[in-house]
């Protein structure tokens, strides 16, 4: 039996005492080594769910365990250093070069300089940007898609066991996106790493995910393998999501 990497027990989040549940009594259990993709309408609570895992937000109710340990009992800084996080708004530091941005966490962990340099080059190659050309630029000198790739490289820097990726490819063109999807699958490498990947692209979610989580209004509508979801959509929201994707396919076939 594989280890439970992430568990949610009756987790709720309200931003104010009287407010609605943004995350509503969620129970989840994610094994080590899974690649979870998360789909859902805008405002359904995907980002909130991710941020509770690295304690940027605290749940209003319920508990979250990482590898069997309740994260509320661990120093948040310790929790975060073990988790790679790509934020939805990219959030590169404008006063640091690309190399410095990528080196942020290795520097916090006091890696030796040569090791940091080597790692920066390696990561830039990985996300398809030439180290010589990009290392010494500042974020403002990059396109939106290039910035997103640096955001990904920065989160991967110390090769964390858990990665939270909040729409990391939103601004990336279709071709580079396919390349990055393949790189990400390769990095995930099957056994030891656990990825949570939020996307609005159904194809991407079903291609990458070992399991797909579909969120609607703070609740998890369905959380299953792509095959099972296609075969047995759990509710009308999931069905309509599937239908919208099929309609797109038909549109393409119509153009053929």
């Amino acid at each position: 039996m594989s280890l439970k990497a992430i568990e949610f027990n009756q987790v709720c989040k309200q931003y104010s005492q009287s407010g609605d549940f943004v995350v509503d009594h969620v129970n989840l259990s994610i094994n080590e080594g899974e690649f979870i993709t998360i789909l859902g309408s805008s405002g359904s609570g995907k980002t909130t769910l991710l941020k509770m895992i690295n304690r940027l937000y605290e749940p209003s109710e319920g508990t979250i365990n990482l590898f069997g340990e309740d994260i509320a009992t661990i120093d948040p800084v310790k929790v975060r250093r073990k988790i790679g996080y790509v934020i939805q708004q990219v959030g590169l530091f404008p006063h640091m070069t690309i190399a410095q941005n990528i080196a942020t966490v290795p520097k916090l962990l006091k890696w030796p300089q040569p090791k940091i340099k080597e790692r920066v080059d390696e990561l830039l190659n990985l996300v398809g940007l030439d180290p010589k050309e990009f290392k010494n630029r500042y974020p403002s000198q990059l396109s939106g898609g290039q910035q997103q790739r640096i955001g990904l490289a920065r989160a991967l820097a110390i090769d964390p066991k858990i990665m939270l990726l909040d729409e990391p490819f939103g601004a990336i063109d279709a071709i580079t996106r396919l390349h990055l999807q393949d790189e990400l699958m390769r990095l995930h490498g099957g056994l030891k790493k656990t990825f949570l990947f939020v996307t609005h692209d159904i194809n991407e979610a079903f291609k990458l995910g070992t399991r797909v989580m579909i969120m609607n209004n703070g609740k998890v509508s369905q959380f299953d393998t792509p095959q099972s979801i296609v075969k047995n959509p759990a509710d009308s929201f999931v069905s309509s999501l599937m239908r919208s994707s099929r309609e797109q396919e038909r549109f393409w076939e119509g153009l053929d």
């Binding site: 941020k51 800084v77 934020i87 990219v90 959030g91 530091f93 916090l108």
Partner: peptide, 18 residues
């Protein structure tokens, strides 16, 4: 300071002083 910068930095495990 832009909140997304704060969030990225905190999310990466910077302490308050860092």
């Amino acid at each position: 300071v832009d909140p997304s910068m704060i969030e990225a930095a905190t999310g990466m495990g910077m302490s308050r002083m860092q």
